[in-house]
């Protein structure tokens, strides 16, 4: 997928820094470019500003230095073409799974004004999406009737319902058990293979990053800088079995050592 990274960049950071207050920069001098349809992962020790990076990318926060461009335009406010999902699924307990997934369409333009007339159509989108992540038959259940993994699937559906071009995931599988996590990797992989939106995945899990991403960025401790850019050239589509083979394990090991060096530095 390296070819995609070479195409004109979709997300473009030029020497970006951000300081929340006087205590110094949370991230510093970050320059990178992400191609449209690329799957990138950010790894690093905790507190390295990975989540800050997400906020900058989605326009929820403005940088204090440098420039952030998405799709060729300087980011000046929240970007509607983004969908977000976090470690906690954050579904609304008074809405059914289906209504939770539909929530963004009630808010984002231009769908919000069409929501009543096109509701049946939108429900169709939501059902399709829920089916592809394996939640068929759970549409009318409430979130608290679902397991943690299922909630996270629904949360990803919610992030994708308005067909964003950029999907931001902040440790989305961090709170799940190992088996569910690997299952959801495959769900995300299949969604991405089918729709080819751009994904920015923030994670602590090196195997997760290496398995899913085209490019892995390793960040340093606060103030976060990018200290390594590693292209993962494993062939697509990747099967979970890949993760038990030597090249993959070696790559993860290398990344692990890098992070180990940062932590001990």
């Amino acid at each position: 997928m390296t070819a995609l990274a070479d195409s004109t960049s979709f997300v473009d950071f030029q020497q970006v820094s951000l300081a929340y207050d006087d205590s110094g920069n949370a991230i510093e001098d970050i320059s990178l470019s992400i191609g449209e349809g690329e799957f990138v992962a950010f790894v690093g020790p905790s507190g390295c500003g990975k989540s800050t990076f997400m906020k900058l990318c989605t326009g929820l926060h403005a940088p204090t230095g440098g420039s952030v461009k998405v799709d060729g335009v300087e980011v000046g406010g929240p970007l509607k073409i983004c969908g977000m999902a976090f470690q906690s699924a954050n579904l609304l307990p008074w809405r059914t799974t289906l209504d939770n997934v539909l929530l963004p369409l009630e808010i984002v333009k231009p769908y919000r004004s069409q929501f009543r007339q096109r509701r049946a159509e939108f429900v169709g989108w939501a059902r399709d999406l829920l089916r592809t992540v394996g939640l068929e038959g759970y549409e009318d259940q409430y979130p608290w009737q679902l397991s943690g993994g299922m909630q996270q699937r629904a949360s990803i559906c919610r992030a994708l319902i308005h067909r964003p071009r950029l999907l931001m995931l902040d440790e989305p599988f961090g709170a799940l058990d190992a088996f569910t996590r690997e299952e959801l990797w495959c769900v995300l992989r299949d969604l991405w293979e089918a729709q080819r939106f751009t994904v920015v995945l923030v994670t602590h899990d090196l195997r997760e990053a290496a398995f899913l991403a085209d490019t892995v960025y390793v960040m340093s401790r606060r103030p976060g800088r990018i200290i390594e850019r590693r292209e993962i050239d494993l062939p697509r589509p990747r099967d979970l079995a890949v993760t038990y083979e030597k090249p993959f394990i070696d790559m993860v090991q290398e990344l692990r050592n890098l992070i180990g060096d940062i932590r001990s530095a």
Binding site: L60, K80, M84, F86, L103, I107, V108
Partner: peptide
């Protein structure tokens, strides 16, 4: 309100 929930909606232009 959970700040993350707010982020999810704010990015949509809420």
């Amino acid at each position: 309100l959970e700040p993350e929930m707010e982020d999810v909606l704010r990015v949509l232009g809420a």
